[in-house]
Design a protein around this nucleic acid. Structure first.
Length: 434
RNA sequence: GCCCGGGUAGUGUAGUGGCCCAUCAUGGAGCCCUGUCGAGGCUUCGACUCGGGUUCGAAUCCCGACCUGGGCGCCA
């Protein structure tokens, strides 16, 4: 008999036979009647064993089965108001497919909380919990939504190498690896390659892929392996790609709110779709805004300073929703960022959630001489960017783009405390397995 | 990398020098119980991260190692 998910059964199917497979979530033995709660990916089903109406052999199996064992149950569906979901299964056959050892490394019913570190050590079991599973069902759904969005907007999906010869932007620390007998690095960003694709004439491209950062940051919002959602688009200015970004964010929120009701309720959260367009403030306005607060912490700020975490938090408090900080000082952005008419300022932006930065992007330099002089000015050697710079020599359109952190998007949308909760098997300074 | 916390049964915790061969919950084993849904009741099992030191006496104080939580810096 074909097996079904628990969610595929309802009280109207009373009298039919059904086969369910899943994990033993709980057993409640009341003496004359025993309830076994079976859990699968989609939910729960109650298997009811009244002592007088069920074979002694089945009671024997249930008596000695352990929690979290995998079983197959075949039985009759019975409508009963007293059962959760309005139905229960009266079993004819119960097979133990895999016996679970004891004690369990953590409690999948969630009655006893476990710390994140404990949960990650036994992630296979942590992921059995419906509210943890819900995060990853939503993650999968968000990726679907993003894919559809890009397809509708005429973007081509690309895949760029993750093993690279040179640093992309010079600033951040990279993981060195051995590539045969040469030194190589794990890619920190697809930036250079997606720009080369503009020279290739692909016009609009997107990629969702891992990025690797060797920074020794140890916080609830950093990962050493993260997922970056990247686009690059020709003949677009930075306003154009900002509009794409805010529309994408709004679309993701809207779709998740509409299509992931069960998952949001498993997580016990509600989400608000942000209004577009998002508020835009320039970097200069942000500095002035901070200085106008009474907080002495910000009175020393001068134009050109980076915005610290407490600056971001204060702006988040003042603005209270998604916003862009635009027109950053040219020197605080990467070399490929297009300067404005006033060369001190760049055509760049960061997308902010009140809790943290989600994305950054800009209009790019497409003039080769200017690009070389900017690389120079940043103290980098243009010779090591030869493969990149060649693409600017033979006709490259003006273009703009951005990169968005998938885990940060999920974390802020779902109100997760720690970014590690948005990754199946997170990689950070301390954690390399599982 | 810098600053500040913390490591007690499988899990989550109480205990800050003797009251502790260590509290409570959950869990395991066993018994009772025919409508549970955090089932209930009874019995029982299971722990002070490691090494060194102070002290008559250390889970408790000190030092080191390892592990770990938070903040900052940097970033997405």
């Amino acid at each position: 008999m074909e097996r079904r998910f628990t969610a595929e059964i309802d009280p109207s199917m009373a009298g039919e036979k059904a086969t369910l497979v899943g994990w033993v979530h709980e057993i409640r033995d009341l003496g004359g009647i025993t309830f076994l709660i079976l859990r699968d990916r989609e939910g729960f089903a109650q298997v009811t064993l009244p002592k007088k109406r069920v074979e002694a052999e089945l009671l024997g199996i249930v008596k000695h089965i352990s929690r979290e064992s995998v079983i197959r149950v075949t039985g009759t569906i019975k409508e009963d108001e007293r059962a959760p979901g309005g139905y229960e299964i009266l079993p004819h056959e119960i097979r133990v497919l895999s016996y679970a050892d004891s004690p369990l490394p953590l409690d999948p019913t969630g009655k006893v909380k476990a710390e994140l570190d404990t949960r990650l050590d036994s992630r296979f079991m942590d992921l059995r919990r419906p509210e943890v599973l819900a995060i990853f069902k939503i993650r999968s759904y968000v990726l679907d939504t993003i894919r559809n969005f890009f397809k509708e907007h005429g973007f081509i999906e690309i895949n760029t190498p993750k093993i690279v010869a040179t640093a992309t932007e010079g600033g951040t620390a990279l993981f060195p690896i051995t590539y045969f007998n040469r030194e190589a690095f794990l890619s920190q960003s697809p930036q250079l390659f997606k720009q080369i694709m503009m020279s290739a004439g692909f016009d609009r491209v997107w990629e969702i892929a891992p990025i690797f950062r060797a920074e020794e940051h140890d916080t609830t919002r950093h990962l050493n392996e993260a997922t970056s959602i990247d686009i690059e688009a020709s003949f677009m200015d930075y306003e154009d790609v900002m509009r794409i970004l805010e529309d994408l964010i709004a679309r993701v929120y809207e779709s998740v709110k509409r299509e992931c009701e069960k998952e949001l309720s498993d997580l016990d959260i509600r989400i608000e779709v942000p209004d577009t367009p998002f508020r835009r403030i320039t970097y200069t306005e942000a500095i002035d805004l901070l200085k106008s607060t009474d907080n002495p912490e910000f009175s020393e700020l001068v134009w050109g300073d980076d915005l610290s975490a407490s600056c971001e938090h204060e702006l988040g408090r003042l603005i209270g929703e998604h916003y862009f900080i635009t027109d950053w000082p040219t020197d605080s952005k990467p070399y490929y960022t297009q300067p404005a008419e006033n060369p001190e300022i760049s055509l760049s932006f960061d997308l902010m959630h009140p809790r943290m930065e989600l994305a950054s992007g800009s209009e790019r330099i497409h003039d080769l001489d200017l690009l070389i002089s900017r690389i120079d000015a940043m103290g980098l050697n243009p010779d090591s960017f030869e493969f990149y710079l060649r693409a600017f020599k033979f006709g490259i359109p003006p273009h703009s783009g951005w990169g968005l952190g998938l885990e940060r998007l999920l974390m802020t949308m779902l109100g997760l405390e720690n970014i590690r909760e948005a990754v199946l098997f997170p990689r950070d300074m301390r954690r390399l397995s599982p």
